[in-house]
Each structure stands twice: as C-alpha cells, then as structure tokens.
C-alpha cells in the first residue's frame, strides 16, 4: 500500500443539460487521487472542486456503492462499468489507472435509454420488460409450503446464477445494437428453470420478447458484448435458453 502517492488524471466527461440538449464533452482535471479512491469517490472529489468554483457538478446515478443496486452506470473509455471483470463502476478503484491517464466518461448510450442529464439515463424500459411478464402470478398468501416444491440444488443454483442480474443495463450499453437480450434472458431463464415458473412460461417469453421490441431495444447478433459488460457475470447461455423457450412457446 502506498498511501502517499497521488495521481492526476484528465477526465473527458459527457455533459448534457437535459434530454433535448445536444450535449458535449468537457475536460476536467482530477487531482490528489489515491489508488484507494473508488471511481465514484474520484468523481465526488472533482465535483467538490466544481462546486467550490461555482460550476455545475457532474451528475451521475449511484446509490448503494457496493455493486448490488444496479444504479451506477457509466461508460469508461468505451467500456460499460470500466471493463473490469464482474465489477460495477462503484466498485472500480483508481488503482486500475495510472497517473496522467486520460479517461473518457460517458452515459449508457442506447435508443431505449434516453439521456436525462449528464451521465444519467432513463432505464424505465427495463421495468417495462419485467412488467410484461417477469413474475409468477401468485397471490399474497394462499401459497404452498416452501418445501412442497422440490428444486434440486443444481437447478436452484443455475436459477440463482440467472437471478444475480442487478438490472443495471450495462448489457444494453455494451451491445452495439442496444439489445436487452441478456437482461431479459436472465429473468426468463430464472423462471423457466424453476417449477414455479412453468405455468406461465410460454406467455411470459412471448410477452417479454415483444416488450423488448416495443421499448426500442435492438436485436441480438450474438456479439456477446453484453456478457463482457455485465458486472454480475450473467452468461449468454441464458439468451440461448430464452431463444429455446421462445421456440417452445411457438408450438405451445
């Protein structure tokens, strides 16, 4: 640990006042950054300077700052969340950068995610996909005992792999087509793997895949950029499973 070493970085940040503003890049300097700063803490420091000098701070979405809420969303040097394996931008630390580096910071860019301001985008389209069928229609109360349904460990584990999605939208941001297949595939797979999801399986995949198109997401061309961008390591096998479910639903 070398606490005394600090870095100076050049940030080239997308600034956009609101949805209708065309937006542009602005250059800032981040000074006195240690390797233990998280990326967002580095931005906090820059913002404190901006506020002191009477300028508008850079706005960005964030909340938990521990990689689980899925709120943070920045494209760093072209890579959603900065490109470190299984890491959200709030968990990215400055030790991954070198003194003197120039860093481009941009919002998620996708047709389905209009920019609200600076680095903040509107991801409500992901909620719409879930509303189209990302649930089991059980009622509150009146359900069977948890152990009445047997789910062998390997199945439960795989469903859990899919369920790890935090809904950040990095997969969409990383996809050259702005497709939401990884996000949707993860939810469909989770419920397709579990017995609880069977009753509505075909309606679910039909409705959720239609919702993807209605919300303006692109189509999959199997680049697998989504998987590279995903901070939770969601595997594209879940897209394959969704495709399979889709085919099954056509004959159901």
């Amino acid at each position: 640990m070398s606490d005394h070493k600090t870095m100076t970085l050049t940030l080239i940040v997308w600034r956009q006042k609101n949805a209708s503003d065309p937006g542009k890049f602005e250059t800032y300097t981040a000074k006195n950054i240690t390797e233990h700063h998280s990326f967002l803490e580095m931005l906090d420091c820059v913002n404190e300077d901006l506020i002191h000098t009477g300028k508008d701070p850079i706005v960005f979405d964030h909340d938990c700052r521990e990689g689980i809420c899925g709120m943070c969303s920045q494209v760093i040097n072209g890579a959603p969340h900065g490109g470190q394996d299984r890491t959200t931008v709030c968990q990215l630390h400055m030790r991954k950068f070198k003194d003197g580096d120039t860093i481009y910071i941009e919002p998620w860019r996708a047709r389905a995610f209009p920019i609200i301001r600076d680095l903040i985008v509107d991801r409500s389209a992901l909620d719409k996909i879930i509303q189209a069928g990302g649930y089991t229609s059980c009622h509150t109360g009146g359900v069977a005992d948890g152990n009445a349904i047997l789910i062998p460990k390997p199945v439960a584990d795989e469903a859990m792999d899919a369920a790890e999605c935090v809904g950040c939208g990095a997969c969409v941001a990383g996809c050259p087509n702005g497709a939401a297949m990884l996000f949707t595939g993860a939810k469909i797979s989770q419920l397709a793997l579990l017995p609880q999801g069977q009753a509505e399986a075909s309606a679910r995949v039909r409705n959720m895949s239609d919702a993807m198109t209605e919300c303006g997401f692109g189509n999959c061309t199997n680049h697998y950029e989504c998987m590279a961008a995903c901070p939770k390591g969601i595997n594209v096998k879940f897209i394959a499973r969704m495709n399979r479910e889709f085919l099954k639903a056509q004959f159901a």
Binding site: E106, R111, P176, N219, A229
Partner: peptide, 29 residues
C-alpha cells in the same frame, strides 16, 4: 431489416470504441 433496426439501437457511438468480445466477422455480417 434487422441490421437497419440495429443500427438505430445505439443512435450515438461512444467516443472510444472498445469491443471486448465482438469480432471483425461478427461486426461485418
């Protein structure tokens, strides 16, 4: 048809292009 739709999927490109998994082949189908 799909390609045209996909070109609109990301109306504005990133300043830095970083591809992690996509290949020359997949990009130029």
């Amino acid at each position: 048809q799909l390609t045209i739709e996909n070109r609109g999927g990301r109306p504005q490109q990133y300043a830095v292009k970083t591809l992690q998994k996509a290949t020359f082949a997949s990009e130029n189908m």
